[in-house]
Design a protein around this nucleic acid. Structure first.
Length: 583
RNA sequence: GCGUCCUUAGCUCAGGUGGAUAGAGCAACAGCCUUCUAAGCUGUGGGUCGCACGUUCGAGUCGUGCAGGACGCACCA
């Protein structure tokens, strides 16, 4: 809609200037005309509030509206009318409708794309799992967000590189290794018939139980970490074996949830990097050394405390490694900006990290961004690993798939749906991704499994259902093509109120994609699609598309329906909801 | 104690740059399947937008203070 807004802002601006001249007002100052949308479509398509002009013109807003209206030229773009203190525009529906449909068809699979981030190199880090246990619900929000934001940025013209950092070292990894040595008896995921990351996770759980009765277990884990760092070959062998199990299992989950990465970084390969950077900073006087040789940064100039960057014994910390990794990434692929998708609990860490990178003289540090998202809680409260209330990602997905399957079966649509497994998997993904992405990232959210698997109301499956019905209509149209062969598209035949509402929504699609991109917020796409689905459902409930004697009307409506399908296909993709031809 | 974020209907959430009567879904109740998929559509009820000041012609939206909640403030990651 932006283009139509601009046209009218320009027209109003000129009329305003002429009116000002007439009233002998020389300088309009900083007054800018703003375009808004009236609360009710019956009032018009664009609204211009006159309040801000009242003081300068020493007139009431309705009088100013009248004055401006008199100075407006005739235009093919529509008409104005005064509604109290507002000057409202009613667009020339038929011309605009024809324009919109043509535009959409021309854009084809690029529909809604913008140049907001044209050719900008953006690196996006997300997921970053530990290799001691399988993914849980919290990871799913992270993955969903990361994948969706990357797609949205690409639709805004960016060149995106998706990176993962596997946390494959540390004392927590040693814990599952230790428990495996103690209780594993050389079993494998194959012999135990267990998905390999769950297999590893089982030993992590066993360690916790074991450590409860054997306090020395914790110390043993630290010993093992030291052995690992020294390169002890037995420990390394075991580490490689178990990491392979964990990572291949996790990758299987990515595959099942439609998550992809361009590059994998491994903490075991990056954790030593960053030390040189810290030493350089010390020499350059940016940091200081304590008596025990540890290196610190003073953050009082950004109103934070001081922070240790390197241990006294020279070993690396979380932040040491993150500094090194960021520098290496910029060398590997010189990004314009780097976005970290990480939970809000790490806000402080990123504040420090970005500041320190700036101190080290990296000018790109100002373009680092922490896309922080809130916790995922359950209706019963927080997920707690100790109490076993953590929702496992694979189990949740399986539960959703089974629910979708029984839903399909109960509808007896087996003849329509050839591959029930594939379809129910797509519905499960649609339910999950839509649920996770329709809440603003910054907010904590409550994940209600029952609600997410209910397919009524504002859900992914509802969107998919609407899309599938559109496909069904289009298939039936194709079957009866000869019947409608004489029909021609005429925008003048699209006179139903909902048709115009849908047109305006379609014309706003790129505005929404741009906003979602600029704010790194997929929820705009989710609610846009819901609005579109809702209004379309109402429209075709009341207005037969194929059951119409006038072939021109059928053809015209079909063109509209096809445009809606384009918006759905693109929008669904952007938020990870599979588009289904049948369901 | 200090810092950051959050608070909108019984529940879960929307509410671009301040603007015309604050919106959905779930739950409850009442209608609609000889017609393009009823996973749908329509209607009813439900709100001092945490509280109080302030800025403004105008505040759910901006500012300050207070209350409640979450998360941080490790030589963990």
């Amino acid at each position: 809609m932006k283009q139509y807004h601009s046209i009218w802002i320009k027209l109003i601006q000129e009329a305003l200037e002429n009116y000002a001249k007439e009233r002998a007002i020389g300088d309009l100052g900083s007054i800018k005309i703003v375009a808004e949308t009236p609360p009710n479509p019956d009032m018009g398509d664009i609204a211009f509030p006159m309040f801000p002009l009242a003081r300068l013109f020493k007139q009431s807003p309705p009088l100013i509206a009248e004055g401006i209206q008199k100075h407006l030229p005739e235009t093919p773009w529509g008409k104005t009318e005064i509604a109290g203190p507002y000057l409202n525009v009613r667009l020339n529906k038929f011309q605009v409708q024809a324009n919109i449909i043509e535009d959409i068809e021309k854009q084809a699979d690029q529909f809604g794309h913008t140049k907001a981030f044209a050719d900008e190199k953006i690196m996006l880090e997300f997921s970053c799992p530990n290799t001691n246990k399988p993914l849980h619900l919290g990871h799913l929000r992270n993955d969903s967000l990361g994948e969706s934001v990357s797609r949205i940025l690409k639709a805004n013209g960016a060149n995106v590189q998706k990176v993962n950092l596997i946390n494959d070292r540390g004392v927590h990894i040693c814990k599952s290794m230790l428990a495996y040595l103690e209780f594993g008896h050389d079993s494998t995921p194959e012999t135990a018939d267990r998905k390999s990351d769950h297999f590893v996770g089982d030993y992590y759980v066993k360690f916790a139980q074991w450590a409860k009765e054997n306090p020395e277990a914790e110390e043993k884990a630290r010993d093992m970490l030291r052995a690992w760092e020294k390169g002890d070959s037995e420990v390394q062998e075991l580490w490689k074996k178990m990491n392979h199990w964990a990572i291949s299992g996790i990758k299987k989950t990515y595959e099942n949830t439609g998550i992809h990465f361009d590059t994998y970084y491994y903490e075991s390969e990056t954790y030593l990097s960053g030390k040189d950077e810290i030493h350089r900073g010390l020499i350059e006087g940016k940091f200081y050394k304590e008596e025990d040789n540890s290196i610190w940064v003073d953050l009082s100039d950004i109103k934070l405390d001081k922070k240790v960057l390197l241990r006294g014994d020279g070993t690396s910390l979380y932040i040491t490694q993150d500094i090194g990794t960021a520098v290496k990434r910029h060398e590997d692929w010189p990004f314009k900006r780097l976005i970290y998708v990480v939970a809000s609990e790490q806000k402080y860490h990123f504040q420090v990290l970005f500041h320190v990178l700036g101190l080290l003289g990296h000018d790109w540090a100002k373009n680092l961004y922490h896309l922080s998202y809130g916790m995922v809680n359950l209706p019963e409260g927080k997920m707690k690993s100790r109490e076993g209330t953590v929702v496992d990602a694979d189990n949740l997905l399986e539960e959703l798939v089974n629910l979708a399957k029984s839903e399909i079966n109960s509808r007896e649509r087996d003849d329509e749906i050839t591959d029930i497994d594939k379809t129910s998997h797509s519905i499960a993904l649609g339910a999950l991704n839509y649920y996770l992405l329709s809440t603003t990232p910054a907010k904590d959210m409550i994940f209600n499994p029952k609600e997410s698997i209910s397919f009524n109301g504002n859900t992914g499956p509802y969107l998919q259902y609407t899309g599938a019905r559109i496909c069904s209509i289009l298939r039936k149209f194709d079957d009866r093509k000869t019947e409608f062969a004489s029909g021609r598209f005429q925008a003048e035949l699209l006179t139903v109120k909902e048709e115009w509402e849908i047109m305006k929504l379609l014309a706003s699609f790129s505005d929404i994609i741009e906003q979602a991109g600029r704010e790194y917020n997929p929820s705009y796409i989710a609610s846009y699609l819901y609005d579109l689905a809702k209004i379309f459902s109402r429209y075709y409930h009341d207005n037969p598309i194929l059951h119409n004697a006038d072939a021109n009307i059928v053809v015209s409506r079909i063109r509209l329906v096809k445009a809606i399908k384009q918006a759905f296909e693109k929008g669904f993709y952007l938020i990870g909801v599979p588009f289904l031809e049948r369901m």
